[in-house]
Design a binder for these strands. Structure first.
Length: 293
DNA sequence: ATTCCCTCCTGCGCGC
DNA sequence: TGCGCGCAGGAGGGAA
């Protein structure tokens, strides 16, 4: 489940290995994704230098000499650096972008992701789905004050509000659950009921959780070289996500998993939530300190 | 405008 | 052992 850290680590891994190299072609074995991939990608890319890659939310924008690749990993996408001659493509290895003796290999069983080409005349930032994205979590513009204003018009539970991507990007189900836990905020709290002070907790928690994950993943960056490099998924260290029934690391009581209608939007919460509900929402003095791992 | 619900897709784990 | 079901989840889009 790629979220911001996985996408960022993917970006760094690709840049480190093939940044500045000239594309020598591409192999497209599958074009059916959320957006169709160009079957003629090889013609489009051949001879062009990969100048840089920018991340916006969970999207990657690859700048070439005469245009851009815009990619998204969706739910199950992985990009690895392989030696295309030595590594036979396996099932769901859909696209190889070749850079001489190395290739970026895009693997995506569920095909919820995509990889498209934009000519240089088209600014990727103008794509509707990119243009409308919320704040980057590490941006100076992602502040409790602004978040407070932005959330004023939504009564969605904070968990759902965060997942829309309208307010902050790159935070999916896992990191959202973890961040709310760290910030001692019930995922069910209506978004417009959270005070600025409490949102300061949330902003700090989101950054803390993402930073930790980036550090974890960063240590596995070298694995990009090998085809079998496993992802350094943060779930290994998750305190609430996927931990239903396990004792809470904070209070020891079992972690509860709340469902909302037919299993959509699972809220991973802990017994800590019970405490939270009892707290007056603006009783800031009652908020326990952020946990340090 | 906001919120709800469905869709895309495959792999996996569960119960029978 | 094998089969079917339901779940997982990012994001768009249409309906309410």
């Amino acid at each position: 489940m790629p979220e911001l850290p996985e996408v960022e680590i993917t970006r760094l891994g690709i840049l480190k290995r093939v940044g500045g190299r000239r594309c020598t072609g591409a192999v497209v074995r599958e074009t059916r994704f959320r957006k169709a991939a160009p079957a003629n990608l090889s013609e489009l890319l051949k001879g062009q230098c990969l100048r840089s890659i920018e991340r916006r939310g969970k999207y990657l924008i690859w700048s070439f000499d005469r245009g851009y690749i815009v990619s998204h990993l969706g739910m199950s996408g992985v990009m690895r650096i392989v030696d295309p001659k030595a590594t036979e493509p396996v099932k769901h290895d859909h696209i190889d972008i070749l850079f001489g003796d190395l290739a970026v290999r895009y693997h995506d069983p569920r095909r919820f992701g995509f990889l498209i080409w934009l000519p240089e005349s088209q600014d990727p930032h103008d794509l509707p789905e990119i243009a409308k994205l919320g704040e980057e979590p590490f941006s100076d513009d992602f502040t409790a004050d602004r978040l407070h204003s932005a959330l004023a018009n939504t009564s969605l539970p904070i968990k759902e509000a965060l997942l829309t991507g309208k307010y902050v990007v790159g935070v999916g189900n896992i990191y959202c659950s973890e961040s709310l836990f760290e910030a001692c905020i019930s995922p069910l709290t209506p978004a417009n009921k959270l005070s600025t002070k409490r949102l300061e907790r949330l902003v700090a928690a989101i950054r803390q959780v993402l930073t930790l994950s980036l550090q974890e993943g960063g240590s596995t960056l070298k694995d990009f070289v090998s085809a079998e490099g496993e992802q350094g998924y943060f779930t290994l260290n998750a305190k609430v996500y996927g931990k239903a029934g396990k004792p809470c690391s904070c209070c020891g009581r079992p972690i509860k998993k709340l469902f909302k209608t037919k299993g959509r939007h699972i809220f991973a919460v802990t017994a800590k939530e019970d405490i939270d509900v009892l707290l007056a929402i603006n009783d800031e003095d009652s908020i326990p300190p952020l946990q340090r791992p």
